[in-house]
Design a protein around this nucleic acid. Structure first.
Lengths: 249, 249
DNA sequence: GACGATCGTGCGACAATGTCGCACGTTGTC
DNA sequence: GACAACGTGCGACATTGTCGCACGATCGTC
């Protein structure tokens, strides 16, 4: 056991326990440490972003870095590991490629990818970063993200890419209303996607899962997503959400 | 700067960055450390609950302790600091005592408390832990918590305490439907409360705010919460939620 | 099924590192 | 306005974390 790491975790737990911000002295007393030692730990934790110091009162509280770690890291890991089987099943039933993505800034990071069954040569999309506003995964993620519209511009990729902010806001509202989203030839010509949100504890959207393929297979004659596929995607997303939100351990 | 803490934060960031679980070797290589050193850090982080090791593959990933830290700690701190002014205003307008609480296991922890204006002797409730199923704060928090019913039993405190699981489930559904909750003489005879959920990024409920006082002031003649007070509570909760979800920093 | 390579784990010695005591400057309080 | 308490910085000491090496297990390959 590395002493300083153990102590720093105790400091973090202490800051998390109390509703108030804590002074150096309080931390030192609570942990039975000299002031200097506590201060050194706090200063290091501040530098790495795990705690923040109020400039006015000089008191310490937990920092934004921890939240980012927990949200970006843990949820994505859990999302990926719990979604593997479901994604395979969705690919099998729909006979389409399946992607799972999370929001990363103004883009979508593809954290998992299942090849379309019965198709030989396909690119590995895991790790890929795609624009959020032109993909079904991205539209779903943006629809449930409060900082959505404050992000980057709406660059056009095809003639169908939605670039007008007001029109895009309406599209997001539609996603929220129906619980799923689609993008038809808005990113790559001839290709379309259907996606639905994956939620964790308390309903927080942490990712999206969807299928992606040729527009003639994803959509019907009027270029509208096929109802059967939409239902498959939504059912899978709900199943993963139940899994994620399930037993707390 | 304490070296080992800096290194451990790098390890955590590394685990958060990659969608996969990482091996000791990978961590060591990525950070330019000897295997032993990386292993020591990982073992310590595991002991404090910040990382977990998959028993099968021996790979490491972020642990539950981090999520708890982020949720219980940061959100509570932010909740409290951002809610202070709103809570005061609510107390002023309703002329009742205001409480802000978060879920802690099967109970509610009161993280802030505003005395009722124009009243002299009152107990300081901050830090108090009250049963969740018999208070308005608790019912609201449980209504939006997926692990709600898996928690402790429904102990009776007064003759009005809801103790039947099915009846309680209906009560929670009602809270979800109307967006607020109440408890009338379910915890202490003669006292009633009205509460509404406070949400953070993405709609995740992190706490609840409510008023608490003599049943004759909180409720009308038919022992139903007064509409005007309900609206005040909900409006305040929404305001705090907007504040919390607002600018990401 | 057996071999090899690779990895996770544990131990010990060294010295680098974190800890502790003390003093300064400042802030908040009576 | 004076005192006390706090946050901060520095330096010496020795405690503590680091590193190299070896063992045992596991996975992949022939």
């Amino acid at each position: 056991m590395i002493q300083s790491i153990e102590r720093s975790s105790a400091v973090l737990r202490l800051l998390a326990a109390g509703p108030d911000r804590l002074r150096v002295k309080e931390v030192a007393d609570a942990l039975g440490l000299p002031k200097s030692t506590a201060h050194g730990i706090l200063r290091t934790l501040e530098q790495v972003g795990f705690v923040e110091q109020d400039p006015r009162t000089a008191r310490y509280r937990l920092g934004r870095g921890l939240l980012d770690l927990a949200n970006v890291g843990l949820d994505v890991n859990e999302l990926r590991s719990r979604a593997l089987d479901w994604a395979d099943a969705l690919a099998g039933r729909t006979v389409e490629a399946v992607r799972i993505g999370v929001l990363q800034g103004a883009s979508v990071r593809v954290v998992h990818h299942v090849f379309r069954p019965d198709d030989t040569t396909q690119a590995m999309d895991t790790g890929l970063v795609v624009p959020a506003h032109a993909t079904s995964l991205g539209k779903v993620l943006l629809a449930y993200d409060v900082t959505a519209l404050a992000r980057g511009g709406l660059d056009p990729y095809t003639r169908k890419t939605v670039t007008a902010p007001r029109e895009f806001a309406r599209a997001l509202a539609e996603v929220r209303a129906q619980g799923w989203g689609s993008a038809v030839e808005e990113w790559e010509p001839g290709r379309a996607g259907i996606a639905a949100p994956v939620r964790t504890y308390g309903g927080l959207v942490v990712g999206a899962i969807g299928i992606y393929g040729p527009v003639e297979r994803i959509c019907d004659g009027r270029l509208r997503p096929r109802t059967a596929l939409v239902e498959q995607v939504c059912a899978t997303a709900h199943a993963i959400s139940r899994d994620l939100a399930g037993p707390r351990r």
